[in-house]
């Protein structure tokens, strides 16, 4: 195993543990916004698609890239906006 892979694995494991710790305290009322908010966070896949773009140089590759970019951008933009819409309703009363 390369040192790089070990470092990545460490980050992944600690990320999981932090996630469990941070999220297990969320009350049932906020479960839908939490899921939607977490959903938006995996929209970070757009960063991955952008990094992928630098390596692509075939017509088939461009098509795949465009589809991936469409998916990822939809995930990230829609995810944050819809979560915000939901949470605006929660805050207006408190």
């Amino acid at each position: 195993m390369s040192p790089l892979l070990l470092a990545d694995l460490t980050v992944f494991t600690l990320g999981l543990l932090v996630g469990f710790e941070v999220i297990s305290k969320v009350p049932a009322t906020l479960h839908t916004p939490l899921m939607s908010g977490a959903n938006a966070i995996h929209g970070v896949v757009l960063v991955g698609v952008m990094l992928l773009a630098a390596t692509i140089s075939t017509p088939a590759g461009y098509a795949l890239l465009a589809v991936a970019a469409f998916f990822a951008a939809m995930n990230v933009a829609g995810g944050y906006v819809v979560t915000d819409r939901m949470l605006a309703m929660f805050r207006s009363r408190s």
């Binding site: 992944f12 996630g19 469990f20 995996h42």
Partner: peptide
């Protein structure tokens, strides 16, 4: 996993966070 392929830390961290959130729910 995509983060591992691209060796991109933000993807690994965000993916792990969401994985944990989904697992708890």
């Amino acid at each position: 996993m995509a983060g591992f392929v691209l060796e991109s830390t933000p993807l690994i961290i965000a993916g792990a966070l969401v994985g944990a959130a989904g697992a708890i729910l």
